[in-house]
Amino acid sequence: MSVELRNVSCVYAPGTPYETRAVTELSLTIRDGEFAGVMGKTGCGKSTMIQLIAGLMRPSGGQILLDGQDINGKNFDRDGLRRRVGVVFQFPEIQLFETTVKRDVAFGLRHFGWTEEEKESSVREALERMGFSYEAVKDKSPLGFSGGEKRRLAVAGVLAARPELLILDEPLAGLDPLGREALLTLLGELNRDGTTILMVSHDADTLAEYADRIILLKDGRLFRDGPAAEVFADYDALKDNGIGVCRVREAAEALRRRGWEIPAGTVRYGQLLDEIAGRWRQ
């Protein structure tokens, strides 16, 4: 699913002493099938942006188009939006509430008009994708699981609707290294199967490795937008604005300063190893 923001602004509590501009004149396009990462400091408008795209907030100005249709337009199918756009919020495990895992994962499907068989197969697939055995967990209470397991259950609850656009807000926060790896692998698989992914993270390393593209926000405006190699290439400008780059880029920069000829677009671990090995042989 493609996403287009046209000149989008969002203001909280307009006309009061508490007025805050969260997002200002933001324009960007995310193509169908892309894996886009969103970065920026706290308060840069990341969360507002994803809530605007998910239709959970209305912009004060501008338009948001999904597959070319204005989501705040009069005839837009909001229920369809809920089905086609999945959102995994920060600490999603908090949203579990039903009496059984099966009911909780199927919660989002109740208004879709699917048959029982369709629902069940979708729930089964989502749970198995998240590493659970459907038969073993379906009748347990979701509230009795451990923290990491609850996170996976909650993500299953979003995946069950088979969204075309999956938005994730800091999905890795608080996960152990194995859990991170598993979730990132899953996101890669979903992306290959055609799901557009928009992932907010402060973790530049992960975004550099996995995302096709990085959208960097600053004070509610678009600061940089492009492939990680391009965005992180401008090392000094990012540092001057207090934005951290990925560690691979840091290492590459340190080597460059010592006279190594390493391209400024070196952002992935494998790339750096190749570069170093190449120079070494010379």
């Binding site: 229920d79 999945g86 959102v87």
Partner: peptide
């Protein structure tokens, strides 16, 4: 903040 987050998360999941 947490309540607002939960409301939005459930809305995004299709809650009415």
């Amino acid at each position: 903040e947490e309540t607002d987050g939960i409301r939005k998360a459930q809305t995004a999941r299709g809650a009415r």
